[in-house]
Nucleic acid binder design. Sequence first.
DNA 1: TTACGTGCAAATTTTTTGCATGCAC
DNA 2: GTGCATGCAAAAAATTTGCACGTAA
Lengths: 146, 146
Amino acid sequence: MAEQGLRSTEQRRLIIDKFFESAQHLTIDELLGRVRHEDPKVGYATVYRTMKMLADGGIAHELNFGDNATRYELADEEAHHDHLICQKCGHIIEFEEPLIEELQERIAARYNFEIKHHKHELYGNCKNTAECEQRLAHTGDREYSK
Amino acid sequence: MAEQGLRSTEQRRLIIDKFFESAQHLTIDELLGRVRHEDPKVGYATVYRTMKMLADGGIAHELNFGDNATRYELADEEAHHDHLICQKCGHIIEFEEPLIEELQERIAARYNFEIKHHKHELYGNCKNTAECEQRLAHTGDREYSK
DNA sequence: TTACGTGCAAATTTTTTGCATGCAC
DNA sequence: GTGCATGCAAAAAATTTGCACGTAA
């Protein structure tokens, strides 16, 4: 695990477990909710600190979809993906498109620029309204709101 | 101008003027700085409210490049563009790439999704280090910091 | 005149920090 | 035992809001 001068504490293990096992794209609130299910005494600061740690270490990515809530997803060394975000139900779909990645590189070259990372987010609506409304209803997914 | 039940006040005129004439991508702080050059009594709230108004009206776009500072740019009915952001000097380059837009639509179709808008940001560094450092030095561009 | 806009300060919201105490090593 | 980690509460930082007063229409 993460033994680069980092301590393996009860809380960190719990937070990381919940993060790994979860359906992706959790907010701090959602994550803390799940953590507190198991140990109600864990504080916000610890979750913030732990996730920052994972993000710094490249294990997690910070996401921000414009609803003032930072989300985290598990980083995947192999493949990069981007996101479709439904603005009605909040559903997030991941996509990969090598052609776009290649075009990006071409654009960077055009402007004499070196890309370190990128963010490509498509906002809109699910066309399958039934599924969308259903997801909207059962927002018990969140499990936690202050 | 904007006569849909909106009043044309001294402050709004000043803020909008400064916004329009500026080199794009201003933060609220930068914008307020320029406004206060002319009228030191203008408050944050007015700038926030005015820019929110422009954004709602589709005249300005809100941007967020991950340094906790919302930026605004003039919206262009005609052409959509995306951004390259240098993480050293903060320089922002705009680009257009119809092929990417088309690929996006294809992706949306694949997932039965309707795109309303999107965000495509390439983060990295200027390869022309000289220009980059120079920009970094002359950050008097900001003109205002609390 | 009359309602909308402004400035100020206080309230919110999200995230970070300081510090005494606790626990991993 | 020693120092990093935690929890709490306070601090920051960005944005929003309430309210008395000003002003465009």
